[in-house]
């Protein structure tokens, strides 16, 4: 099955919007940069943070699942995003979801750990540039000041009229990931491009 998958043309939720995102990036002169990061591996992990599985899964992934609410932990190509006191989203490079899922399952042994491939549930928008915060502030009620929403912070919140997972990447210049439900991605793209009108 896996060998045939490569021959199937894949379409990400925003593949048809790539041109518009690139055009906005270009005309803004880099003030805002918008792009979809399609097909990232995303695995939802539910486990007891105080149980034995937390450490075992951390070891298997090579990163500690963040226990501090609304923070991410990054190691190598993997990012673990805190979603709740017993819930994380592990994000990795394209195609890695099977491997991630099986490593986590193997590490959790008999502990009641839930692992779900959600790679297609949300797509990822990368928003960078000096006006990235200003752009998000048009629709996100969170305080995004760099002193408050620092690098390594994340939040499940709302942007415009849709829910998102917002991640502040490692350094201020690296901007934000906006993870949005695939069915809302078109709406959010239209909204972002409209909100970006003043910066382009």
């Amino acid at each position: 099955m896996a060998d045939t998958a490569l021959t199937i043309p894949r379409r990400s939720p925003l593949s048809h919007a790539a041109d518009r995102l690139a055009a906005a990036t270009r005309t803004s002169g880099g003030a805002v940069r918008l792009a979809e990061l399609p097909f990232l591996a995303q695995v939802n992990v539910r486990l007891d943070a105080k149980g034995a599985a937390a450490d075992a899964v951390g070891l298997a992934l090579g990163l500690q699942l963040p226990l501090e609410p609304n923070t991410v932990v990054r190691a190598g190509e993997l990012t673990a995003v805190w979603l709740g006191p017993d819930e994380w989203l592990v994000v990795g490079p394209t195609g890695g979801q099977r491997d991630l899922e099986s490593r986590i399952r193997a590490a959790s042994g008999d502990e009641p750990v839930a692992v779900t491939d959600v790679s297609a549930q949300r797509t990822t928008l990368l928003i960078t540039g000096p006006r990235a915060r200003d752009l998000l502030a048009h629709g996100c009620p969170l305080d995004l000041h760099p002193r408050i929403f620092r690098a390594g912070c994340c939040a499940q919140t709302t942007l415009a009229r849709t829910q998102i997972v917002l991640v502040a990447r490692d350094e201020p210049k690296a901007g934000f990931w906006v993870l949005v439900r695939s069915s809302f991605a078109d709406y959010l793209t239209d909204w972002l491009l409209d909100a970006a009108a003043e910066y382009v």
């Binding site: 048009h138 629709g139 415009a160 069915s183 709406y187 909204w191 909100a195």
Partner: peptide
Amino acid sequence: RDRGALHDPIRTTA
């Protein structure tokens, strides 16, 4: 901005 097409999110399938 909540008017016209952006008044309410439109969810679409693949």
